[in-house]
Each structure stands twice: as C-alpha cells, then as structure tokens.
Design a protein around this nucleic acid. Structure first.
Lengths: 141, 141
DNA sequence: AGAATAAAAGACCTTTTAGTCTTATATTTG
DNA sequence: CAAATATAAGACTAAAAGGTCTTTTATTCT
C-alpha cells in the first residue's frame, strides 16, 4: 500500500512526535533504534520531511529532529503525500490514465469507494492520534 | 495498490472473459491490443495464470487464451492473489511483521478496516461482474 | 510429413526502489 | 577558537519490479 520509505517515515515520526511532546529532540540513531528502521535510509527520508516543513531539525551537540507544529495539525495524509505522493489516493485501480466517472474502467466505482475510505482515514488521523497507540515496545521485532 | 503486472492481468482477463462468453479464444496480440498492455510482459503473466488454473490456453493455429471456468467463480481476489499474493490484503500498514490485535501498531485498527473493505470488495466482485462495465472502448488511451 | 501458427520457457536488459557510505556543513560546548 | 556532535547532501551499490527477446514446444492445416 505504502512504500517502505513511507512506512519508515511514519514510524520515525511517531518516535519524534512522542519526544517532542516532552520537548526533547531525538537523534537519528535513537529514532532508528526505536522505530526499527535502517539508519541512513531513514535519515534521507527525515531530511525530505524537513524540507517539506513537516519536521524540524537542529545540527550540533544536543541537536536532533523535532516537531514544532501542532501534532494535531499533521495528518497521516500529509505524511504519505510528502513521501509517496498522492498516487495511492487518486490512481485508477487498473492503472488507466484516463479513468473517471465519465469514462470509468470496469472497476471504477467499487475501487473509488475503497480509495475514498483510505483517504478519509488518512485525513482524519493525525500524528497525535497515532501517539496514543504507541506504547513502549510497539516496534519490537 | 496493485502491481503493474496485476493491473495488466485484470485488464487482459476482462478481454479474454468477454471472448470466452462467445466461445472465442484470443491470441496474445489481440489481448494486448485491446487491453493496452505490453505484449511480452502480459504473455508472461498469462502463462502464470494458466499454471494457476485461472486461465486456459491452446497452442497452434486457432489457439489462444480462454477461460473454461464459470466467470462468476473467478473473483477479483483470486486474480490479485494469483499475481501479487495476499500481501495487500493482510500486511500491516506500517510494515511490521508482528502486528495484530494483541500487539497492534498505532495504525492497526484504522488500517485493518480499510484493508478489510478492499478485501470484501475483491471477494465480492467476479470477473463476470467486471464484464458488465467493459464497453468497447474502455481501455482506449 | 511439412509449414505455419501460437503459447511456453527462460535468458536477458532497464528502471525504480531500497539502502549504504563518504564528505560537507552547521551548532554547541569547553 | 578548537573539538565534538549531529544533520545535509549526494555519490554510490543492491535488489526488486518492469519489460523484452530468442528459442522451444505443441497444435493445426494443407
């Protein structure tokens, strides 16, 4: 459904979000240790999210990643869009470039409603919502 | 959502299914011309589906692909499973190997219901159902 | 039987995704 | 200012997905 990078990104953001609630910055090593994600790859994803304004970072000692925005203002949709784009929310189930209500593929209506529910779910869940489901050992292997 | 190969496979099957209703076999060239899919790649997918018993084929002149099963007995789920496997129907939204109701990831419940709707949709739609939405120029570019 | 036709098989190539590693840059602290 | 620390940037490598091409095998038709 989502790319590996996107899954890693979401997991990492929950770790950072939790720390941010305690006004703590988190280094990439700690993020990846807790999120169980590959370090260099995750770092690259984080940098992309910083550029897109979802995340903040500070270099140097006592630096790390943190979130300055309201955790309720960052939706799952925002995160997925930033990493994977909107394809999963809008593309035709049969991969057609020109599939819409006026020229529907055989799957159009049925697929559209699934996509719609996915989209609604992602729009209605914020990073803060995810934190309530994040107990200490969630990402244990 | 589905792989390219899976999308091609579904499109190709609608072409073959329609022909099978008229007791016609279809060659790979005609299938790909109508389904707008790449020929060699589609052929490979068809061969996989033949091996898995979803599709039948006959070599030689006047040969081609056809479906001998009841078109109502082949669900979208069967097709997706044959080509992409069951991953999309069962995997954790955050990519965790051990995510379930007893040890849920922060997204588990919300994601499970989307996945569930996708699964239900795929199980309840048969190849025959798709044919009613297939008018002549559906896969026109 | 021989020629033509069509799928089967599998080697091969290309592109994208996934992931690593090295070097540079910024920040803090002593 | 120097040393240490941490992110930024980007070149690089590996693996998977996507796709092509050639050869073989089965079937039909003359």
């Amino acid at each position: 459904m989502f790319s590996n990078g996107c899954e890693y990104g979401i997991r990492a953001l929950t770790i950072i979000g939790r720390a941010s609630k305690e006004d703590r910055k988190v280094g990439i090593k700690e993020i990846c240790r807790l999120a169980k994600t590959p370090e260099s790859f995750t770092a690259k994803i984080m940098q992309n999210l910083v550029r897109r304004g979802i995340l903040d970072s500070q270099k140097g000692p006592a630096g790390g990643f943190y979130i300055s925005k309201d955790l309720d203002s960052i939706t799952l949709y925002d995160i997925v869009e930033a990493i994977d784009g909107t394809g999963v929310f809008v593309s035709c189930g049969l991969g057609l470039a020109h599939c819409d209500a006026s020229r529907p593929c055989p799957l159009h209506d049925k697929f559209a409603s699934v996509r719609q529910e996915l989209k609604a779910m992602c729009k209605s869940n914020t990073l803060n919502d995810l934190l309530s489901g994040l107990h200490d050992q969630v990402y244990k292997r």
